[in-house]
Amino acid sequence: MPMVEAAGTLEVSIWRGGAEGAMQRYQVPARGNQTVLDIVTHIQRELDPSLAYRFACRVGMCGSCAMMVNGRARWTCRTHASRVIGADGRLGLRPLANLPVIRDLATDMAPFFDKWARARGRFQPKDAPDGAVPQEFHVVPPASKQRREADAGIECIGCGVCHASCDVVAWNPDYLGPAALNRAWTLVNDVRDGARQERMEAVAGDAGCHSCHSTQSCTERCPKQLDPSAAIAGLKRSLFWDTLLGRRA
């Protein structure tokens, strides 16, 4: 599809540098239906090849192009510039919040995925030793409550938008965060998984689900329309009943 002819210019400010840096301004042609990722790509290809950023699929599947757009975490490939340009006619782009900055718009995602590991976000087959393959498939009825709860959050792709949008993560960097806790809740409801007790212990500490203030920014901004807030509430309820019924040491 041919690009629509330019209709004026946009003033775009982009974070340049690492943890210490500054915003740099660029003048970019304004085109019909251009996305924020189109704008960043134009700058990198035509104006400043040293600009660092991430993208892969460009069609809203991988989430790797996420960044802060006028102060809000978004997938830039799905964000049309005309819908997010401020009243002043400007566009400001920064790397995802609550994560270390490698350079420019690229963040270090290692702390984000480390929290998945801390929340025991890896499936552990119930009927097999750690790392082994179970001998038979476990039948999970599609209409069961556990299946519905597990399916509700299974489509998370780890883009980091909820993590960047979470006030609690900003206040407490040790907090596991919405994505890791959503993954934990998915596995807690997976009847095939055999690590429930360890997982519940992992999410019960000061950095776990009880630290959530339920502001629901993670749910509001999830590009996949998932509900991490509900998952975290589910973990809180489960921990309450586990304690009440003596299932926790």
Results as ranks from 00 to 15, higher is better:
Pro111Thr: 06
Asp130Gln: 09
Asp127Lys: 03
Arg58Asn: 03
Arg78Val: 01
Cys77Arg: 03
Pro129Lys: 09
Ser64Trp: 02
Ser64Glu: 06
Asp48Asn: 15
Gly158Trp: 00
Ala128Ser: 04
Pro100His: 02
Met61Thr: 14
Ile157Pro: 06
Val59His: 13
Val84Glu: 06
Val84Cys: 02
Cys62Phe: 01
Arg148Ser: 14
Arg58Met: 09
Ser82Met: 09
Thr79Glu: 11
Arg120Cys: 09
Val101Lys: 12
Gly89Asp: 08
Val140Gly: 03
Phe112Arg: 04
Ser64Tyr: 04
Arg45Tyr: 04
Glu155Val: 01
Ile102Arg: 13
Gly92Ser: 14
Asp127Trp: 02
Pro111Asn: 01
Pro95Trp: 07
Arg72Glu: 09
Met109Pro: 01
Ala56Val: 06
Val101Arg: 14
Ala143Arg: 07
Thr107Cys: 00
Val84Met: 05
Arg58Pro: 01
Val161His: 06
Pro111Arg: 06
Gly92Thr: 13
Ser64Asn: 11
Arg78Asn: 09
Asp151Gly: 03
Gly153Ile: 10
Cys65Ile: 03
Pro129Leu: 07
Ala81Phe: 00
Lys115Pro: 13
Glu136Asp: 10
Arg78Lys: 15
Val59Ser: 13
Val140Ile: 15
Pro142Ser: 09
Asn98Leu: 10
Ser64Leu: 09
Asn70Thr: 02
Asp104His: 05
Lys115Trp: 08
Ile157Glu: 00
Leu47Glu: 05
Phe113Ile: 12
Gly92Val: 15
Pro141Val: 12
Val161Lys: 03
Ala106Lys: 14
Pro134Phe: 05
Gly63Ile: 10
Asn98Asp: 05
Gly63Val: 12
Pro100Leu: 07
Ala152Cys: 10
Phe55Ile: 05
Trp116Phe: 14
Ala97Trp: 11
Pro142Glu: 11
Leu51His: 02
Gly86Cys: 05
Met61Val: 14
Arg118Phe: 07
Ala110Pro: 00
Glu46Thr: 14
Arg120Ala: 13
Ala119Asp: 05
Lys145Met: 01
Val161Tyr: 05
Gln124Ile: 03
